[in-house]
């Protein structure tokens, strides 16, 4: 069980342009290049103040839009513990798995959260505790968990290739 730091709360349909503006897509690909522009057009405060162990809470369809992976890569690199949202767009969902960024789908938790509430995550049990109340979410399927456990898709792929050799 881990106690998290700050919670950044956003609304519905947060698209990939808000998470990382498209104009940088072909010039920024490494974590160092991405981080200063994270959420630039949505919340200019974020990139300056986000800390490892922070959480993001959001509404439905988080990460919709482009297939760019910079949002997932960047959020993982700054140490976001998990994103908790009502739902996700599918390419972003895959990108997050591939980066080892944890996405939790739990609409009840998002609705319950009030500014200043303590949030705890219990991943093994699939539980979020907000202001003392417990909400459950489905744990990931095995195939996908294996990618996350390896630390991301490339690490997972390297392991597989090495075994084949």
């Amino acid at each position: 069980m881990s106690e998290t730091n700050r919670v950044w709360k956003y609304g519905n349909d947060i698209n990939t342009d808000m998470l990382f503006p498209g104009k940088y897509t072909y010039t920024c690909s490494t974590a160092d290049e991405i981080i200063p522009h994270l959420l630039e057009d949505l919340d200019p405060d974020f990139a300056n103040n986000v800390k490892s162990g922070d959480l993001i809470l959001a509404g439905k369809n988080f990460g919709c839009g482009s297939s760019r992976e910079q949002p997932a890569l960047g959020l993982r690199a700054v140490g976001i513990d998990a994103v908790i949202a009502k739902s996700y767009a599918r390419i972003f969902y895959r990108a997050a798995i591939n980066q080892g960024l944890l996405l939790i789908e739990c609409p009840q938790a998002v609705d319950a959260y009030r500014e200043g509430d303590d949030v705890e995550l219990n991943l093994d049990q699939g539980e979020i505790i907000i202001a003392g109340k417990t909400y459950t979410f489905p744990t990931l399927p095995e195939e996908i968990l294996a990618i996350r456990e390896a630390g991301g898709l490339l690490e997972y792929t390297r392991k597989k290739l090495e075994q084949k050799k």
Binding site: S29, G65, S66, S67, E69, R94, A95
Partner: peptide, 26 residues
């Protein structure tokens, strides 16, 4: 395809869909 509009070829009966860059690399 590492582009979200890869779904375009559905017009020709192709199961086509977007993925991210890391997945394309793998």
């Amino acid at each position: 395809g590492s582009d979200s509009h890869t779904c375009s070829y559905g017009a020709l009966g192709v199961f086509s869909t977007g993925v991210d860059r890391t997945e394309a690399a793998a």
